[in-house]
Amino acid sequence: MTPEPERPAGTAAQAPEHGLRVLAEAASALRVHTPTGWRAVRDDLLARARRAHRPSAPVRGRHALGEYLVACDVVVGELREAVDGVAGATAVGIACATSAEDLLERVTVEVSVVFGEHLPTTARAVRDAVGARLADLLGDLSPGAAGVDVHVHVGDVVVDAAGLGRSPRDGA
């Protein structure tokens, strides 16, 4: 065991005082930086909480071999891809509602649209894209255009297609 180094006289008495001074400086620095730092951390924490695994509600489908369940998250991903195929629009958010029997009843699609697009035409194209993708995904149990309420909400209008967060479409 190595001997403890010798301390100059008075150092032991100064140690608690020095520690308190360092603690006071650290606390002061935290008080100065915490509000803005907390805002950045808070946004990150909220984003992480939103991304956390949550069980996805099932949506019932049917094909030649029988009925099956598709996770609502999968339905939303497929619908997002279909909506993003509509010229001049992109999906910002998609929500699905199902019955107690897990049958799809309602889809709400929030879109961002390029300025100058005819909104009723774009909304109709979004509804058609959603209906077609649901028919592919859910088979015989697909509610179709008449069986499910598809609500289209224009949540944003951007100046050009670059504002949609994807490359401009050529009408496809």
Rank of each mutant, 00 (worst) to 15 (best):
E117Q: 14
E117H: 10
L119T: 09
L103C: 11
P120G: 09
E110P: 00
A97G: 05
T108V: 04
A100L: 10
V107G: 02
A89M: 04
L104R: 06
L103K: 08
R124V: 09
V92H: 12
V113A: 12
C96W: 01
G93F: 04
S112K: 05
E101T: 15
V92K: 12
G93M: 09
G88A: 13
V92Y: 07
F115W: 10
H118F: 12
L119K: 02
A123N: 02
C96R: 04
A100I: 07
P120N: 09
F115K: 08
V109F: 01
A123T: 02
S112V: 03
P120D: 10
E101L: 14
S112D: 10
A91C: 02
E110W: 00
P120Q: 08
G116M: 07
A97M: 03
T98W: 09
D102M: 12
C96I: 05
V114A: 13
L119Y: 03
E101H: 13
L104Q: 09
S112P: 04
L104S: 10
G88V: 05
T90C: 04
S99I: 07
A123G: 03
T108R: 03
F115C: 06
G116K: 06
E117C: 12
G116N: 10
V111C: 05
S112A: 13
D102T: 14
R124H: 13
T98P: 12
R106W: 01
T108Q: 02
V114W: 11
H118K: 11
T121L: 15
T121I: 14
F115Q: 12
D102R: 12
I94F: 01
A91T: 02
L104N: 08
T98Y: 09
T90A: 15
I94P: 02
L103N: 12
A95P: 00
E105R: 04
V111T: 10
H118V: 14
L103H: 11
A100V: 10
P120I: 07
A95E: 15
T122K: 08
C96M: 03
A123S: 08
L119N: 05
H118G: 12
G116P: 06
F115I: 03
A91F: 02
A91Q: 04
L103R: 13
E101M: 13
V107K: 01
A100F: 03
T98D: 14
V113F: 03
V92W: 08
A95W: 00
G88K: 07
S99G: 12
V113Q: 09
E117I: 04
T121V: 15
E105W: 00
A89S: 10
E105K: 00
G93K: 15
A95L: 04
C96L: 08
G116W: 07
V111R: 01
E105I: 00
S112Q: 06
V113N: 06
G88C: 09
H118Y: 13
S99N: 11
P120M: 07
E105Q: 05
E110G: 04
D102I: 06
